[in-house]
Amino acid sequence: MRKAFVETLTQVAAENSRLIFLTGDLGFQVFDNFRERFSSRYINVGVAEAQMICAAAGLALEGWRPVAYSIASFATARAFEQIRISVSYPNLPILVVGAGGGYTYAASGVTHHAADDLALMSILPGMTVVAPGDSNEVAALLPELLQLPGPSYIRIGRYGEPSYYANEPAVLGRARLLRDGERIALVSTGDLAVPVLEALEVLKADDIWPIAYQMHTVKPLDTTTLDQLSQRVETIITIEEHLPSGGLSAAVNTWRTTCEKSIKLLRLGPVDAFALGNLERNELRHRLGYDAEAIVKTVRSLWDKLK
């Protein structure tokens, strides 16, 4: 995803001479090409996230379109008040980039975990919040984010995540249909689209066909699609690499309070705890019960009950 991010960013920068990039001293060698081509529009502020955001705000006030980049935990939580007061409050067109969102850096320990980034950014008025699932979604959504009149956040992963195919293109603010089906809907965000698709392959053999949507845009939530979905299924299962508060499942739960039809919600994702033990990411997903295996198990037992 990071490769797709920097390539798309470089393309946009070539077309938009007002785009300017700030980093909190991260992205070793990632931005070398960008820096060579647009040296004056590449700013390393140092390990100073508050300054990165305030400087981005000053640049935006002077008509620039800043992109502020750091590891997700530092880009969001460390500079939260600066984003709240100097980005969200004045509604400036700044894109905050959280690299390694969720438990991308699982084994690096709690300091590098960002399972609260979507909550922190979603709670800010006017903020658009996006968690693409693969490089194609990054490449499709990034140019759209860089056209927005207000602030936005994008959670990106690392390198070499698997890409997937869907019938629909990724469009900002719209749930992306991965596979059509019936009775149960799986709604994922971030790269959990990948285990969802793996699970669908397994379930297919048992003639189990849930619907799968990738909700890359967490805010504003695509309630139109959810409303339509509520007419077609009895259960929605959300899958996210985020704490229970403030992420995708919380957003869907809030939508449900406005939904006329009674619908059951299930959530697969991390529990409300720091992820201790320096686990490798896949092991963490397995133990916390939101990998492909867990998705298969949940859907299968639900499908049987619905029969």
Binding site: I20, I53, A55, A57, L59, L61, P66
Partner: peptide, 9 residues
């Protein structure tokens, strides 16, 4: 911090 961003721009 905002001032420094303005100066840069």
């Amino acid at each position: 911090g905002i001032g420094t961003g303005m100066v840069y721009g």
